[in-house]
Design a protein around this nucleic acid. Sequence first.
DNA 1: TGAGTGATTGTTCAT
DNA 2: ATGAACAATCACTCA
Length: 100
Amino acid sequence: MPKAAASRSGKPIKRRTKKDPNAPKRGLSAYMFFANEQRENVREENPGITFGQVGKLLGERWKALNEKQRAPYESKAAADKKRYEDEKAAYNAQEEEESS
DNA sequence: TGAGTGATTGTTCAT
DNA sequence: ATGAACAATCACTCA
């Protein structure tokens, strides 16, 4: 069976803000792009619903989409990830420079 | 070499 | 300003 079943190990992941000096932030996630577009549509159809509703509703329909529908989001996620590769590379070089 | 770990991303909402 | 559900991620680090 898979190691990480649902999300990861099963820990209530806690949100943590910055932590490193030049933290080479990772790439966004498909959900981030999806939420970017859905937030307008979801909130537009539910003018007045609170984060509790939107947040959950958003996640539900996020998977409700077909692979093709998530494709454009995953596509951006992959592109964003590459973006992270750049900062991570710069973070590596910069780190060395500063270290020196 | 392989494993998993943590860190991060963005929305909305409230305080 | 931040955190919290919602979901994905996935590159990094370590022995």
